[in-house]
Amino acid sequence: MKKILTLLGLALALSTTSLLATSPLMKIAGKVNDIIITVAEADQTLALLTKGKKSWDQLNKIEKTQLIRMMAPSKIVAQKATKLLTTKEKERALSGFWMQKETSQTSITDKEAQKAYKEMIKMAKKSNSKQQIPTFETIKNSIKMQLAQEKVVAKLIKNANIKLK
């Protein structure tokens, strides 16, 4: 019975995949190491590159080949990462990417950064630091990035349900 169910499941999966690949929703633009690149993916890439001025259907054969070759490295890297990274490595990479995304979407004003800079100078003086502190303009972006990360972490911790057993 298990073998029959397994075979049925496998047959269903293969037929569904082949149906999707031939459906108008998933036209295939090309393949890289048996990784399918859809026309939709190619159009997304073209939209970024040409600011929406060109689509897959407007490209000639040479341009289509160039586009697939340009998209190939990210597809191959993703395939290798999926196969070769451990679960912990994948979790770290994913959490790092998510943190980077959230941080970039968190806005920090110059006023907030200036306040943090003044606090940093105050702490340096209090600890009698001999290290010279760069000007605000020199480190403004670094301060903003750090403050954005702190905001994201604070929000996560605030919403976390932490219990000790």
Rank of each mutant, 00 (worst) to 15 (best):
A29G: 04
L84A: 07
T50V: 12
A13Q: 01
L25D: 12
T17M: 13
P73R: 03
L84Q: 09
T45W: 11
A78T: 06
L59Q: 03
K80I: 14
K83D: 15
L49E: 14
T86R: 04
V39G: 03
T86N: 09
A29L: 01
P24F: 02
G9K: 02
E91R: 08
E89A: 14
K88I: 06
K83C: 03
I28K: 09
L14N: 03
D57Q: 09
A78Q: 11
P73N: 08
S23G: 07
E63M: 05
L14C: 11
A81T: 09
L12R: 04
K31M: 10
I28M: 05
K27M: 07
M71W: 06
L19H: 12
A11Q: 01
W56S: 00
L46Y: 01
I68N: 00
E41N: 11
P24N: 15
N60C: 04
K80P: 00
Q79I: 00
V32L: 09
T50A: 11
S18W: 09
A42S: 11
T17L: 14
A40G: 15
I76P: 00
A42R: 02
S15N: 13
P24W: 03
M70E: 06
I76A: 06
A42I: 05
L10C: 09
T45C: 01
A47R: 14
G52K: 13
A40S: 13
K54E: 12
A47I: 07
K80V: 14
L14M: 12
L59T: 04
T50I: 10
I76E: 10
E63D: 12
W56F: 12
A40W: 07
G30R: 01
R69N: 15
K51M: 08
K54V: 04
T87C: 01
K31H: 10
L25E: 06
L12D: 04
A81P: 00
M70P: 00
T45Y: 15
Q44N: 13
V32D: 11
I68Q: 02
M71T: 10
K75P: 02
L67P: 00
K88R: 14
